[in-house]
């Protein structure tokens, strides 16, 4: 009765890949729901930790999915999750890319360009809130979330400074016994 975790990973992220408008930053509530609540592969703290790790490494945001796969089933899990998440949407991109000129002249194309961004915006804010709920357990954490959000929203500096700042505050607060 226990399905192989590799199949679960592939089915889970493959299905997500087909409807994941907004890309990885917009997908966090679903990745959290699937990997913390439905399956459950990770605890809240592990989810927050892995999200921070995947944001710290260079490369596409998308790699959170690879890391979840790694946590669940090592190298095989990583490959299953990554390929399942990349292949379906990439096939669509390949086909649509070749039809681009024809599609761009259709009446519905500019409508879609107006209609999708609000949905993506809602998804990204939801991503932030869900990730914050997973990461934060006290007033200090809430403070770091607000400070980091303000830093990103109000300045043009590299987002890694925000993560570095949060890491340092966590370290100092731990030493002082605030955590």
């Amino acid at each position: 009765m226990t399905e192989s975790p590799l199949i679960k990973l592939a089915v889970t992220f493959g299905a997500l890949s087909l409807v994941s408008v907004g890309g990885a930053p917009a997908m966090m509530p679903e990745i959290h729901r699937l990997s913390v609540e439905v399956h459950p592969w990770l605890t809240n703290a592990e989810f927050a930790r892995d999200f921070a790790l995947s944001q710290t490494a260079p490369g596409p945001n998308f790699m959170m999915i690879s890391l979840v796969g790694w946590r669940v089933a090592g190298l095989e899990g990583l490959l299953a999750a990554t390929l399942a998440a990349v292949i379906p949407s990439s096939i669509i991109a390949l086909l649509v890319g070749r039809l681009y000129v024809r599609l761009a002249r259709q009446d519905w194309f500019p409508v879609l360009q107006l209609a999708l961004p609000p949905i993506v915006l809602g998804l990204i804010v939801a991503s932030g809130v869900v990730t914050a709920q997973a990461a934060v357990s006290g007033a200090l954490g809430v403070g770091i979330v607000i400070a980091s959000a303000s830093f990103i929203a109000l300045t043009k500096y590299n987002p890694l400074y925000a993560i570095a700042g949060g890491t340092l505050i966590g370290l100092v607060a731990g030493r002082l016994g605030f955590l």
């Binding site: 930053p25 966090m28 703290a45 927050a48 930790r49 999200f51 921070a52 944001q55 710290t56 990204i124 804010v125 991503s127 932030g128 809130v129 990730t131 914050a132 997973a134 990461a135 934060v136 357990s137 954490g141 809430v142 770091i144 979330v145 607000i146 400070a147 980091s148 959000a149 303000s150 830093f151 990103i152 929203a153 987002p159 925000a162 993560i163 700042g165 949060g166 890491t167 340092l168 505050i169 966590g170 370290l171 607060a173 731990g174 030493r175 955590l179």
Partner: peptide, 16 residues
């Protein structure tokens, strides 16, 4: 302790 701070900052980054 540092991980808790990094996780909170990474979440704030997405909200920002």
């Amino acid at each position: 302790a540092a991980t808790i701070g990094a996780g909170a900052a990474a979440a704030g980054l997405v909200i920002g």
